[in-house]
Amino acid sequence: MQALTNRAKQVERQPMSFLERLYLVAIFKGMLITFRHIFKKKPTINYPEKKRPFSPVFRGLHILNRDAEGRENCTACGLCAVACPAEAITMEAAERQEGEEGLYKEEKYAAKYEINMLRCIFCGLCEDACPKDAIYLSETFAPADYQRKQFIYNKQELLIPHPVKEPEAYKKALGNRVPREKINPAI
């Protein structure tokens, strides 16, 4: 038969010698290899006790932001819902009443704000779209749950803790994030 290429190599195969047929040498070599693995560092971490740090640009669970006085930033403009490629965000707007100035930053606010975490693809376009620094993606991810409906996160679950009333919880939720108003006072 004509070879298509001349790269074919004839392999010489000899029947195994007695020592090889005992397998012992080969087995011993293999055992040395596995023995070396005893001293190797294990890549696994004990998960719930120890967690790997996320990168600061990690796109995790959404957070609805408040300003330094604890007023909600969101004005229910709907830009995030429009930007969302997965159509995971729904909201209903409401007008701020007299005496609610301490609750909402501007005259309009989101009465209802829901994100379906099963639809969400964590792309972060909502954060990019938001003109008011009202929504951002944090460094945690959505925990598991037993029911699908539990994955539709409402406003209470998304809101960051109040910076004045619950300063410690706020600090924990904020993490290393620098509030945008400190970078750009215009918003």
Partner: peptide, 10 residues
């Protein structure tokens, strides 16, 4: 587990 660089039951 140890020979396979895992942790095993703990």
């Amino acid at each position: 587990a140890i020979l396979q660089d895992r942790r095993g039951p703990n």
